[in-house]
Design a protein around this nucleic acid. Structure first.
Lengths: 211, 211
DNA sequence: GGGAATATTCCC
DNA sequence: GGGAATATTCCC
């Protein structure tokens, strides 16, 4: 009889084996480029949250820590923070890049006297709220107000065009996906045929022997 | 007393002291984010060029090198290249990220048999040509031509729209065809599986009879 | 603080 | 290969 496992084996063509994805430093953090639709918070937020939490148990609270109430965090020593903490959690050691990210995610600096940053949804013990924090988006094609004035007709037309381009983009994406599906199907067909052929041979031999 | 070096380090927010930007090998490379208007080539290109040139003098040609004519370069050992070279010149060690960049800058893969990449303006001994290589831009805005005068602009726009609609229509047609192909493939699969299954049964019976 | 360019990642 | 999201850098 045909080994079932052989048949099953070939059906798993569509799986995404991303194992070749080498992320160094053994971090279990999410990766850049992940779709924001997923519940998973941005890597930056997870890393920042985790470095605070992991800092609690170590001797790191003199460098960075939650504030008294856990409603914000304070970088007590930017130099050490950059050299040790940033280097450990991120791909750089520039304090200003870290701050750029904080701003991107809507954090506010609380005091001019110390590096204290706050965000509604970024609080001690509330890791689950991180996924509610969104990047500020960069207003892809908002045109300056003074150019908008020409007429509403123009605006409508431009809007139309925008929609068309959107649809166009989606169609191209769909096309790619369909094409890939077809490729998979074809590959599967080839495997099935090979499997069938091999089985026929095997059986033929068996029968011949039995005769 | 407070260590001065610690204090100084913290002030580097506004000014661009990228000295803490640890890219090994004492590089004089430009940095990301620099304006493309400047004559300076993209950091990625400089780094890639330099790693080839610096490799010449060392024992690195077995990992990566120019090809015979110096018209392209070959990564002979992607594993070592990633671990050793990428890690040294970039902020990662993913070969696929490197390739993504090559594609962004318009390099072409020359052979399916080895990792050879070519770009018109990327050749041995021609460091000065690097500044002529441009990133492929990503369709920055829906309407790149705001600043044109509206009279001739209108015609262009209408023409654009027409083209868009045309493309759109074709894409939808293509989609339908692809979908039909998929349906056929699936039907064929089912038939093949049925065929296989039936054949198995028949043979089983035959063999049982012969035993 | 944020705009914009380049870099890196993930995905199709 | 390339689209698109996030990350990092540079600049105002």
């Amino acid at each position: 009889m045909v080994d079932n496992s052989v048949l099953e084996l070939n059906l798993g063509l569509g799986n995404n084996n991303n194992n070749n994805n080498v992320v160094v430093g053994g971090d279990a953090h999410a990766h850049a480029g992940q779709s924001p639709r997923q519940r998973c918070p941005a890597p930056f937020l997870l890393k920042t949250y985790d470095l605070l939490e992991e800092g609690e148990s170590e001797d790191m609270t003199r460098i960075v820590s939650w504030n008294e109430e856990g409603s914000a965090f304070v970088v007590w020593s930017p130099a050490e923070f950059s050299e040790h903490t940033l280097r450990r959690y991120f791909k750089h050691n520039n304090f200003s890049s870290f701050i750029r990210q904080l701003n991107t995610y809507g954090f506010k600096k609380m005091s001019s006297k110390r590096w204290e940053f706050k965000h509604e949804k970024f609080q001690r013990g509330c890791r689950h709220m991180l996924s509610e924090i969104r990047r500020k988006k960069c207003e892809p094609s908002v045109f300056p107000a003074y150019l908008k004035s020409s007429s509403e007709e123009n605006a409508t037309e431009e809007n139309n065009q925008q929609l068309l381009m959107e649809e166009n983009k989606n169609l191209k994406k769909e096309r790619l996906e369909l094409q890939m599906q077809i490729d998979e199907c074809k590959a599967l067909e080839i495997k099935l045929l090979a499997c069938l052929s091999q089985f026929v041979d095997t059986q033929q031999t068996k029968i011949r022997r039995l005769c």
